[in-house]
Nucleic acid binder design. Structure first.
Lengths: 245, 245
DNA sequence: TACGTTTGTGTATATCGAACACAGTGTAAT
DNA sequence: ATTACACTGTGTTCGATATACACAAACGTA
């Protein structure tokens, strides 16, 4: 039931074909595989995006799927999600939030896999971001109608969690450059929430959170009156620290 | 790696001793066991309680643990939590809410077990409730300092989730008899939240939810002015339907 | 210098949570 | 029958917060 991971990290999601073969010869040892799926959000062109990979399962040809992998026997569940993120994006020290565990018997065509979903927010334009295969692509959330496995449901669940958390916690930190205008921040919130927000009320609300400090710099390269730049006072939420209430 | 469940249902939590023995002879097939842990809340004597079993692990002698079991290979994760609840309490059709999945490598002394926590609310005095062993006991939440495994952390997480949900969803339905006074409801909320509440404000708030209907009956057997009885308009939240927003 | 676009700011209104008091009704004891 | 006791049932005020909404100033461009 244990699957060589070095093989898997460069391929798409889980490869249970060999495990399924083992199952028939050693049924008493085959129980349930444990995996993590990472919903890696990015932000670009005023759209919330998610990093997907083309499914290499016949059952799901032409569909995309989330990035996931089996959890290693000597690896914490949280650490597995962090490893997937690192292996896929080269990013370290990024906020990861556990969302829900999906455990329907038939959710994976090759065998029984229980998968815990995490979401993460990364800066698409970060110089540290290193997408290590051509198979990975950013997809606008709005354009996604169908994914492999139950990944659409996982995605929807994570989007909803993200929406619930952005007003209470400065999770969007990683989606923006270090310095940004309030307008940019508002556009980000609008993209995540899928609504438009009143500008004055938004600024008041954000000001009350006390998350930002205003810089003595103006945005540049815009064709209108430039706004003041801001930055987050605190470091981005830390790896796996999660959200404290 | 697959463990006979009929043996387990009457014993305490997981029994991985045999699995651990298998591990050394067939390391390549031993991956990770998947379990569920149920935090079954009850309410009695104005206290929030939880159903616990005495741990039969040497490592945790004299400690109590939550009710859990391994998930069967052909059983949905949610169904496993439902089965544990049914096997332990005889109760059917009860609200269950997934809360979090705990996956630290060292959380179980006998081997690698990833466990998904659920909470549930049951009526301690229900005639349907049938606690099928003498090893199960209700413990006041406030009195619990330490549990086996990481179960104290699981319990705390579930209590917190319950506290967050009771004002938005009529989850406490199952903790009360069919007809109850507003005072009884308030005492229940106070027990769950661990605070005292202003009576007039509480009644206003509950009235706004529109969850209750007032009956033409008064409470009986009290030594003071009796209050009007109320009941929930809707059926209790359903099995595994979860909370919809 | 006029236009287009965005910045930056404040007020009025409705809603919500928190604090708070008093008359009424049933029981139990005398 | 009277009284003590314990709880029911109810409304207002205050501060905080959400929402709706308008206008002058700044910068770039033509």
């Amino acid at each position: 039931m244990y699957i060589e991971h070095s093989v898997m990290t460069m391929t798409n999601h889980l490869n249970l074909k060999s495990a399924a073969a083992e199952k028939s010869s050693h049924p008493e040892y085959f129980n349930i595989a444990v995996s993590v799926d990472c919903v890696i959000f990015g932000y670009e062109g005023k759209e919330l995006k998610v990093l997907l990979i083309k499914s290499d399962f016949e059952e799901f040809s032409d569909l995309y799927s989330l990035l996931g992998d089996l959890v290693k026997p000597d690896e914490d569940l949280d650490a597995a999600s962090y490893r997937v993120l690192r292996e896929r994006t080269g990013l370290d020290d990024v906020f990861l939030q556990q969302v829900h565990t999906f455990g329907a018997v038939d959710r994976h065509p090759s065998g029984r896999v229980v998968s815990t979903a995490y979401y993460s927010l990364v800066n698409i334009n970060s110089h540290k971001l290193n997408i290590n295969t051509n198979d990975l692509h950013w997809h606008s959330i709005k354009s996604i109608k169908k994914l492999a496995f139950d990944h659409k449901k996982i995605l929807d669940t994570c989007v909803q969690m993200l929406q619930e958390q952005i007003m209470d916690h400065p999770v969007v930190h990683n989606l923006l450059p270090e310095k940004f205008s309030l307008r940019a921040l508002q556009e980000l919130y609008e993209a995540i929430l899928g609504t438009s927000l009143d500008r004055r009320n938004f600024r008041k609300k954000i000001a009350l959170k006390n998350w930002l400090s205003e810089l003595d710099e103006l945005e540049e390269g815009v064709t209108h009156r430039p706004g003041k730049l801001h930055k987050f006072k605190t470091k981005p939420l830390n790896l796996l620290k999660g959200i404290s209430k």
